[in-house]
Simulated scan of single mutants.
Amino acid sequence: MEEVNQSTVTEFILDGLTDIPELQLPLFFIFLGIYLVTVVGNLGMIILILFSSQLHTPMYYLLSSLSFIDYCQSTVIIPKMLINFVTERNVIAYSECMAQFYFFCVFAVAECHMLAVMAYDRYVAISNPLLYNVTMSYQVCLWMVAGVYGMGFLSATAYTIFMMRLLFCKSNLIRYYFCDFFPLLKLSCSSTFINEVLVLSLGSFNILVPAMTILSSYIFIIVSILNIHSTGGRRKAFSTCSSHILAVALFYGSTAFMYLQPSSVNYLGQSKLSSVLYTIVVPMLNPMIYSLRNKNVKFALKKLIQKISIHSTRNDFH
């Protein structure tokens, strides 16, 4: 550990994913590729939904909100992480570190609740299709999305306020690739008891409640699928459902492993792999899982490409 002479830390050094020199450049290109796919996939979904009138429904409105969250989540973490692969010392100022921690919490918590809202939306669509437009009206969707972001900002504010009360005077080396909860706690020279109680209580609410909502919704969805008489329709519904469940299990499983345990048993080596899943891999996979296998999205994309090509042809002609 790198010792610091001053009484309080004004900047941190991010240790990154690995300290093996031979892996730095390959990892840089791998994560740069992942980031580009994430940005194109999520921003592409937002633009497609915005400009395709047939996608102006509650389901796609929620999907565009998830894409925005995933884009922001990746942008908060990956660009700074990429610097770590190509520089000798990846320095981050204390204020920048707290800002990164704050916005990471906002979007991580928001994603937990957004996935639950989307599962509830699918449950309503399948169990009460005739009442779907009433139950999931635009006003209801707006309130749900407001609640998702409200929980994100409320939780992040609580986490960050108590994090900023801590003194960091042991070391300025964060053995991690971004300013996360437990890596920061390990550097504190003041009591972290309140912080740990806060993350276990709020974390339990933000992870377990949405996870149970999703589980309940998908149980009802699966029961409804079993009532489908067409074998082909049942197989297709199960295929879509299983890919959604896989994405959700990956996200909630890795977040629960990271945050629903005391810092005394939190191993940063194992946590790095776990956090890469929900901070980097899941935001990249979500547009593919929730959209690319969707007929309406494929049709809207084809139509938008045709519009763009016709428009560009007309411009060339003139």
Rank of each mutant, 00 (worst) to 15 (best):
Y177I: 01
C72Y: 06
T192Y: 03
V117T: 04
M81Y: 06
M136A: 07
N42C: 07
F162E: 13
V199Y: 00
G44M: 03
T313W: 07
V4D: 04
L200F: 11
P262C: 08
E11T: 02
F193M: 07
Q54I: 11
S239G: 11
L142W: 06
S254Y: 04
C105T: 03
I310W: 06
F299L: 12
L260M: 13
Y138S: 12
V134H: 11
A108N: 05
L142I: 03
I308D: 03
Y120S: 08
W143P: 00
Y267A: 08
G232T: 07
T279L: 13
L187W: 01
D180N: 12
G152D: 02
T213K: 04
Y60G: 03
M163V: 02
V297N: 03
C189H: 04
T231H: 10
K302H: 12
M114P: 01
A158N: 05
M212Q: 08
A256K: 00
S243N: 09
L25W: 11
L260D: 05
V145N: 04
V140M: 11
S274Q: 10
S217Q: 04
V76C: 10
D316R: 13
N294F: 03
K236G: 06
Y267D: 15
W143C: 13
G147C: 10
L187F: 05
L167F: 07
T135S: 09
C179Y: 01
M118T: 03
Q73P: 00
H56K: 15
V276A: 12
I245V: 15
S312T: 15
E2R: 15
F107I: 03
G150F: 14
L246Q: 02
P58L: 03
G41L: 05
L285F: 10
C72R: 11
G147D: 02
F299Y: 11
G16N: 05
P129D: 07
L184T: 01
N5W: 08
M164R: 02
G33H: 06
L14C: 04
G41R: 01
C141W: 00
S67P: 03
I219R: 13
P287K: 04
L292E: 05
T75N: 11
K298V: 08
L32K: 06
Y267S: 11
Q261L: 13
D19C: 04
T157H: 12
K186N: 09
S243R: 14
Y120L: 15
I308L: 14
F238L: 15
G152L: 07
T8K: 13
F68V: 05
P58Y: 05
F238V: 10
L131C: 07
L277P: 00
P26G: 08
S230T: 10
S64T: 07
A116T: 04
M164K: 01
V134F: 10
M59P: 00
N294H: 10
C189T: 09
T10K: 14
V197S: 07
N296C: 06
F238M: 15
L246A: 15
Y290R: 10
I161F: 15
V4N: 09
S216D: 10
S204E: 06
L50G: 00
L198C: 04
L17P: 01
C112W: 02
A256S: 15
C179F: 00
A110C: 09
I214F: 06
K303S: 14
S190T: 15
R89I: 06
S201N: 05
Q73S: 14
Q6N: 11
F205Q: 01
S67C: 14
I13K: 11
F12W: 01
T87Y: 12
R175I: 00
L185P: 06
S263E: 12
I289A: 05
